[in-house]
């Protein structure tokens, strides 16, 4: 059996083991490389900077717990950025499984850093079912869609909500999404009500959303952990995403190595293997 044949029939668990090592090693041996900022991320940061201080803004937690590693650094950075500008942050989610819990936890943790008070400086509206109903309905009246906040307190009892009736009272929407909800925010809220939207999304969704950046429907875009790291750096508050980038580097190089090795085996190995490669 030639070396190429051996490589072609390698037990998948060896691949898994190598990936595991590549993820663990950078935590032990730190290697630092500069992280560049893409124009899309910079645009988003500048758009948030341009939001007048003390404005009412939405931070939308449209992601599942499965993508916390990519999305949470973005939502955390967004809430930090708005609190830094003394903006009134209203959070909500279209994700039934865990969305309300994560928005509550993240916002409360960040609020502690900035000494912000619930009901006055921030409110968590929580979850309601149905993108079309929720996003369209809030254009007429937020209170009709969310009669209470996530904890069951009527909106009329929350001072922050006194000045917020519908999208006319919202200056900016920071949407963090790991699914197609971002498209609904674009097509319903931005198109019909004209509220500027910035989007942070998973790496899987990012290539699609370049189209919305070019059309101006998104003011900017953060793609995956790299996007989150870029935002953390622009905020001058490096956190989880920046730490994760060093690890990301090594695993990417390993996977590129796998692609090269797999192709070498494909071209240099026995012909019959070529036909059964897929």
């Amino acid at each position: 059996m030639s070396i190429w044949t051996k490589l072609e029939t390698l037990d998948r668990r060896w691949v898994y083991l190598m990936v595991s090592i590549a993820v663990i090693v950078p935590f032990i041996i730190e290697a630092k490389f500069p992280i560049s900022i893409t124009p899309e991320a910079r645009k988003l940061f500048e758009a948030v900077e341009a939001v007048p201080d003390s404005s009412n803004v939405f931070v939308v937690f449209d992601y599942y717990a499965s993508t916390t590693a990519e999305c949470e650094p973005m939502s955390r950075a967004a809430v930090r950025h708005f609190f830094r500008k003394d903006c009134k942050v209203i959070t909500l989610t279209n994700i039934p499984l865990g969305g309300p819990s994560m928005s509550e936890r993240v916002t409360r943790e960040v609020a502690l850093e900035y000494d912000k008070e619930y009901g006055v400086d921030f409110v968590n509206l929580g979850f309601k079912y149905g993108y079309v109903a929720v996003l369209s309905g809030m254009g007429t009246s937020i209170e009709s869609i969310f009669p209470t906040d996530n904890s069951g307190t009527p909106l009329s009892e929350l001072p922050l909500m006194d000045s917020v009736y519908n999208y006319d009272d919202i200056e900016f929407i920071f949407e963090v999404a790991d699914n197609a909800t971002a498209e609904f925010w674009v097509s319903i809220v931005n198109a019909q009500y004209g509220v500027p939207i910035g989007c942070g999304t998973t790496a899987v969704s990012a290539p699609k959303y370049y189209s919305f950046v070019q059309s101006g429907q998104f003011v900017g875009l953060l793609g995956g952990m790299k996007g989150a790291a870029e935002y953390e750096l622009m905020m001058d508050q490096p956190d989880l995403a920046v730490r994760g980038m060093a690890v990301q580097s090594l695993v990417h190089l390993l996977i590129i190595g796998f692609v090269v090795l797999g192709n070498l085996g494909y071209f240099l190995g026995p012909r019959k293997k070529k036909r059964s490669a897929f």
């Binding site: 060093a246 990417h252 190089l253």
Partner: peptide, 10 residues
């Protein structure tokens, strides 16, 4: 894949 990581970009 190279471009999106610091080491690859370097």
């Amino acid at each position: 894949m190279l471009w999106r990581v610091p080491m690859g970009e370097a």
